[in-house]
C-alpha cells in the first residue's frame, strides 16, 4: 500500500519536472524577455541591462536557470514576481483557490443540471428539445456566452458583478452543459440496452430506479470527462476569466507569459501539473471504486 502511494508520488514528481522543463524552455525560446517588457519601446543602458540580467538569472544557460528554479521549488521559496514583487507562492495560492472554487462550482452545477435533464429526457421523454438546446449550448465558445450574459444584464441595467465568481460560473455552466448532457445521455441509453437493465426491467423495477442503475453504470466514463474539464478550469478558463476580470489561474498565466514573469510561470506550471496529475490518479481510484470489477482485476 505504502509502496503504491510512494510510486504515485514519484509519478507526480516526474510529471511536475517534465512539465516545468518543457514550459520554461518554450517560454525562454520565444522572443522577448522580462527586460524587454520592463523597458517597452525604450532600451536600458548596457550596464543596467547586465545588472538586471544577472539579477533575473538571464545570463546563465537555460538548463542552469531551470535547475535553479527546480531547487527553489523544493525549498519552498518560490521567489517573487518580477513585476509586483509579491511572493509567488501566496500569489499562486490565492489565484488557485479562486480557480478551484470556480471549477468545483461549475462541475457541481453542470452535473446536477445534466442528470436532471437526462432524467427528464430519457425517463420523461423530453429528448428532442434538450438535444437542440445542447447543440445551441456548444455551438458558441464560452466567451461568447459570457458576452451574451453581459449584454442581457446591460440591457436590464443590472450591475455586472465583475471580479466575482457568479458570471464565470454561469458562463461555464451554460457553455458546458451541452456536451456533458450528450455524453451522459448516450451512456444512459447504452446502459438501457444492456442485458442487466433488461433483467431489472423484467423484474418490474420502476423507471426512476432503473435510471439510477443506469446512472451508476454510466458514471466511470462520465466522471472521467467531468474531471478532465474540472482540471482545465483549475488550470484556467482564460477567456472567461479575462472577460469578467476574475482573478483565476488562467488570467495569471496569460499575464505572466505576456510580461515574461518567469518565477510566476514556473510556479504556475508546478502547481497545475501536480494538481492535474493528482486529479488523474484520483480519477483512476474513483474509477476503481465505482467499478468494483477493475479493483478485483488488480
Amino acid at each position: 500500500m505504502w509502496l503504491h502511494i510512494l510510486k504515485k508520488l514519484f509519478y507526480v514528481l516526474l510529471v511536475v519536472l517534465t512539465t516545468t522543463a518543457v514550459l520554461y524552455s518554450v517560454a525562454r525560446l520565444f522572443p522577448g524577455d522580462p527586460i524587454t517588457v520592463l523597458y517597452g519601446e525604450t532600451t536600458p543602458s548596457p550596464d543596467i541591462r547586465k545588472l538586471l540580467e544577472a539579477r533575473l538569472w538571464l545570463d546563465k544557460p537555460i538548463y542552469a536557470q531551470l535547475l535553479l528554479y527546480w531547487k527553489r521549488l523544493f525549498t519552498g521559496d518560490w521567489g517573487v514576481s518580477i513585476f509586483s514583487g509579491e511572493p509567488v507562492l501566496t500569489l499562486i495560492l490565492r489565484r488557485y483557490i479562486n480557480s478551484l472554487a470556480l471549477a468545483l462550482a461549475t462541475t457541481i452545477t453542470t452535473t446536477a443540471l445534466c442528470v436532471l435533464l437526462v432524467y427528464l429526457s430519457t425517463v420523461k421523454g423530453y429528448d428532442k428539445i434538450f438535444t437542440q438546446l445542447a447543440t445551441v449550448s456548444t455551438s458558441m465558445p464560452a466567451v461568447l456566452w459570457g458576452i451574451v450574459l453581459m449584454l442581457v444584464l446591460a440591457l436590464l441595467k443590472m450591475p455586472i458583478p465583475f471580479g466575482s465568481i457568479v458570471m464565470p460560473l454561469a458562463t461555464l455552466t451554460i457553455a458546458g452543459v451541452g456536451i456533458f448532457y450528450t455524453i451522459l445521455k448516450n451512456l444512459i441509453e447504452k446502459a438501457f440496452s444492456e442485458p442487466f437493465i433488461e433483467m431489472y426491467r423484467a423484474v418490474g423495477m420502476s423507471r426512476a430506479r432503473l435510471f439510477i442503475r443506469a446512472l451508476h453504470y454510466a458514471m466511470p466514463v462520465y466522471v472521467t470527462a467531468v474531471l478532465y474539464r474540472l482540471g482545465l478550469i483549475v488550470a484556467g478558463a482564460i477567456a472567461t476569466e479575462t472577460l469578467f476580470s476574475y482573478p483565476g489561474m488562467g488570467k495569471l498565466l496569460v499575464d505572466a507569459f505576456s510580461s515574461r514573469d518567469y518565477p510566476v510561470l514556473l510556479g504556475w506550471s508546478a502547481m497545475i501539473s501536480s494538481t492535474l496529475a493528482l486529479l488523474n490518479i484520483f480519477g483512476d481510484l474513483l474509477h476503481m471504486y465505482i467499478d468494483p470489477r477493475i479493483r478485483e482485476e488488480k
Binding site: A154, L156, F162, T242, S245
Partner: peptide
C-alpha cells in the same frame, strides 16, 4: 481601476452602471 480588455465588457460595464 477594473481591468477589462474585452471591448464588450467595458461597454456593458458602463451601460449597466458597474463602472
Amino acid at each position: 481601476y477594473l481591468i477589462l480588455p474585452d471591448a464588450n465588457a467595458r461597454i456593458s460595464a458602463i451601460l449597466s452602471g458597474s463602472v
